[in-house]
């Protein structure tokens, strides 16, 4: 099936891209196109103007900058999966990128696109929530940075204005001893949309409690942090009782839908199981467990 008609710009500089977005009503950025082209072919979207950001060098790559990991928005999921910097500082994001769709999709899909699309099931979202990531936005009129837990507003709705481009995702380098893990449950092991996904990031014990992040995907209109589950673990020892309490809290914080991939009941049960399975190995072999 053919694609609807559109104008395609391929700017080589960020400023040029931002000017086009500012001056072309209805313009939509495109990078890998693995979601956008499918929706255009299905006539769910037909933007009059596409701005391909693939030729702008400075939008891709992983780097460390002032104590933060910075991932250019046009960095592909495959590049993140292979990145030594990501493996070293945020293995849960490496894991999520390894389970993302299929190899051929990972070679095109970008982290900026995955976040911009704001699917409740976006596989990079729970890890980024668990990492306290922020989304860098640029427009012809300025720059701003939005914490990712305020970026998602609803199913496919985000804080990004039409004239803005996501330029990078950044997060603080986790403290030494932080452990993070990601799991997703799909209808098959690869190339599957998550039925439920979960990410945890547990910091080392510290005065005033440890840093705990538990994030869930595909169980609410947006990817969410399970804050009550986090609280269940942030003070006392992380033992079996605390893990069960956290799993229970996480299930109660979700508002899953029933769809062809699973019922709301099933999704809540799956959250309990995923959170337990993610937490147990994190505490095993740790003196504070």
């Amino acid at each position: 099936m053919t694609l609807p008609k559109f104008e395609l710009h391929r700017p080589e500089s960020l400023d040029e891209a931002l000017d086009i977005l500012a001056s072309s009503p209805g313009a939509v950025p495109i990078a890998g196109g693995t979601a956008l082209i499918v929706d255009m072919r299905g006539r769910r979207l037909s933007p009059p103007v596409l701005v391909d950001i693939g030729l702008i060098d400075r939008l891709s790559g992983v780097r460390i900058e002032g104590g933060e990991v910075v991932i250019g928005a046009a960095t592909t999921i495959a590049e993140i999966k292979e990145s030594d910097l990501i493996a070293q500082h945020s293995p849960l994001l490496s894991e999520a990128c390894g389970l993302f769709a299929s190899p051929s999709v990972r070679n095109r899909a970008t982290i900026g696109g995955n976040i911009a699309y704001a699917s409740p099931a976006a596989d990079t979202a729970p890890p980024l929530l668990a990492l306290d990531a922020s989304v860098e936005l640029a427009s012809a009129s300025g720059r701003r940075t939005v914490p990712i837990d305020r970026f998602f507003l609803g199913v496919r709705r985000t804080e990004r204005r039409d004239d803005e481009l996501i330029t990078a995702i950044r997060f603080p380098i986790p403290a030494e001893g932080t452990e993070g893990r990601f799991r997703k449950l799909g209808l098959r092991r690869a190339d599957a949309i998550s039925v439920v996904s979960a990410a945890v990031s547990i910091g080392p014990p510290a005065d005033g409690g440890r840093r705990v992040r538990i994030a869930l995907g595909a169980v609410a209109p947006t990817p969410i942090r399970a804050r009550r589950a986090e609280e269940a673990l942030s003070a006392g020892p992380i033992d079996e009782g605390a893990i069960l309490a956290a799993a229970e809290a996480a299930a109660s914080e979700a508002s899953p839908v029933s769809d062809l991939r699973g019922s709301d009941w099933y999704r809540r049960e799956a959250i309990r199981a995923l959170v337990r399975r993610l937490l147990r190995p994190v505490v095993e072999g740790r003196s504070d467990g």
């Binding site: 890998g32 196109g33 693995t34 082209i37 499918v38 391909d52 190899p103 051929s104 999709v105």
Partner: peptide
């Protein structure tokens, strides 16, 4: 050199 689905690449890209 990278595996891609050619149905999801615009020819201009």
């Amino acid at each position: 050199g990278k595996l891609v689905n050619s149905c999801l690449v615009l020819a201009w890209q």
